[in-house]
Design a protein around this nucleic acid. Structure first.
Lengths: 342, 342
DNA sequence: GTGAAAGCGCTAACAT
DNA sequence: ATGTTAGCGCTTTCAC
């Protein structure tokens, strides 16, 4: 099939030079002096023969694959990637673009049962890897020890020796709750996912507690609703809330998706947002401005997060930059899901 | 940095065999007879030294990278990938999973200005590529000629010599419109994106026309609204519709996202769905069941589409299967956005 | 049953 | 200013 692919040797022969010269020219090596004529000849040959370098071979010789791994947690069944969550799609787009601008391609992979992130990085000789949402520290052993350039995104309680980029979740929880308080609310519920010892949800919970404390509102455990970060749980909770004698007048949901479910569940139960219950979400994804009512929420800049993650790995690879741990700011976006009371 | 990585030679030495033997064992080659003892020794060595094969080197020698390219169109500015559209995320998840099960990794890439899909495939020695949403035939020249295993997804009017998987868009347009008709509607608008000579939107338009023709309803160009496939356009159109003297009583929107915009725009303009205007969408993504009202729409099985695309490329690669052109069915999902009238 | 060695396409140190 | 050549880590043919 497909005739022999033209390689560097072919170019060298055609242009009447050596492969070294061809290599120098292709790699635009400034430490080598080549006459314009030679360059011309070689470029002509490349053009005429339609030569495309084999990066695999180059990698073998040079030790750089120009390949970055983007490793993503898998869904419960340990199968598909979590790309149904649009956060990842947005992240990927921005990440790929940034990487491509700097000459890198992206390999994207889940992990098989008996295979670690480390194995993938090794197998494919990845120059660096970015892992989103590591929950289990065991998943990342071997990476640091083996000097694999790694950036952890949205991963809490991990080895600080690895680079990371996260957002200021705690502050996010704080400003969301403070906003509700400033709008006159005093009984404020928290709708969130599973509360691990360290993790996004726990951070946001801390921010919620901070705000309550600051304004002298007593924390009442019965107002903390913890389930899964899903539309379904939000919906269920909304239904329940609508049945309660004494529901809180406002809810801070630690994810927009949860808030969307809440809106629908509450409505189904006969309660309107924001008339009956006010709501603040977290993420500000595409949907937030398009639901009804438009959602007041804590905004994080996913694009920027991805861009920074890409720059971090690449800088570590190319400039031997040291690790850094970056925390990105969040901000409050006020829309129509909070009502002033009192 | 990082001590020399252990390679096959190290294993061979440690186990007291040759690299050939190690290679045979790693690749579980049934055409080679190796004694269990030897296998044991080698596996021990692999274990002890923590050996991970270098797939790049393997590729150079074997001509198979076990790498599949997933190439995605970029946004207008020719920059970021279109992953903000959750369709792609869903596709990717399913595609990656299916590929991984069969031992392949995914390289994901947009194209740079002076770089073709073909170049990427060559550079990275991809075993095969899947391209989603090719609009310009020029983008895929070179692929067929050079025998690169290619599967085109959701691409119309392309070279039939390449494998492809699409859905039955025309029928989708038909059943959507027919449903509206069966619910008593006689003035039915079409909200769609840009109508190219061949493409998804055009196919769906044809289905719309088919249905009108079948039921003897005259096609009226003033009811065909063509803009961009975006929430924004839907919103705008909804606003306009609400101003019209004589708006259609129902709309078939060729994408859910358009329908969502419409719902909000109409509402803002004072018209309710489905009370004032009925609506059928297309896609049935995550959102459709969660908007208010829940959207009646044409369902396509993205998961399955991705799975089939993966199987197609891999079968072509491994079994030298011939090309095939697959068209997947669509179905109508009735929810709450259509009202029976008349 | 196992091994020696050539070669995949490239880079880079060293010659010239 | 350009060429020679030894690897990079693996597969595979052919010998033994």
């Amino acid at each position: 099939m497909a005739m022999k692919r033209t390689n560097m040797k072919d170019i060298a022969k055609k242009a009447g030079v050596s492969t070294a010269t061809v290599s120098y020219i292709i790699n635009k090596r400034t430490d080598q002096v080549i006459t314009p004529q030679t360059i011309q000849k070689v470029e002509d040959a490349i053009q005429r023969l339609g030569y495309v370098p084999n990066l695999g071979a180059r990698a073998l010789a040079s030790k750089h694959t120009k390949l970055l791994g983007l490793l993503i947690p898998q869904t419960e069944e340990k199968k598909k990637l979590m790309f149904s969550n649009s956060f990842y799609g947005e992240f990927l787009s921005s990440f790929e673009y940034e990487a491509r601008k700097r000459g890198y391609n992206i390999l994207i992979s889940g992990t098989d049962v008996d295979e670690s992130y480390f194995d993938i990085a090794r197998k494919r000789s990845l120059d660096g890897i970015v892992i989103v949402g590591v929950e289990d520290e065991a998943d990342i052993v071997g990476l640091k020890k083996n000097g694999i350039h790694t950036v952890l995104v949205d991963s809490y309680g991990m080895d600080k020796e690895l680079s990371s980029v996260t957002i200021d979740d705690r502050n996010g929880g704080f400003i969301a709750t403070e906003h509700l308080i400033s709008m006159g609310h005093r009984t404020i519920g928290l709708a969130t996912g599973y509360l691990t010892k360290e993790g996004v949800n726990t951070e946001r919970l801390k921010g919620y507690e901070d705000a309550l404390a600051k304004y002298g509102i007593e924390l009442d455990g019965k107002y903390v609703y913890s389930g899964t970060v899903s539309y379904e749980y939000g919906f269920e909770l909304g239904l329940e809330l609508a049945q309660m004698q004494d529901p809180p007048s406002a809810i801070f949901a630690t994810a927009d998706i949860l808030a969307f479910g809440l809106i629908k569940g509450l409505k189904q139960g006969g309660l309107m947002v924001p008339d009956d219950i006010s709501l603040v979400g977290f993420d500000d994804g595409f949907l937030a401005s398009n639901t009804d009512p438009a959602l007041s929420t804590v905004r994080q800049d996913v694009d920027n997060k991805a861009k920074i993650a890409a720059r971090l790995v690449i800088d570590m690879i190319e400039n031997q930059e040291d690790r850094s741990n970056i925390v990105l700011p969040v901000s409050l976006v006020e829309r129509d899901s909070v009502r002033k009371i009192g």
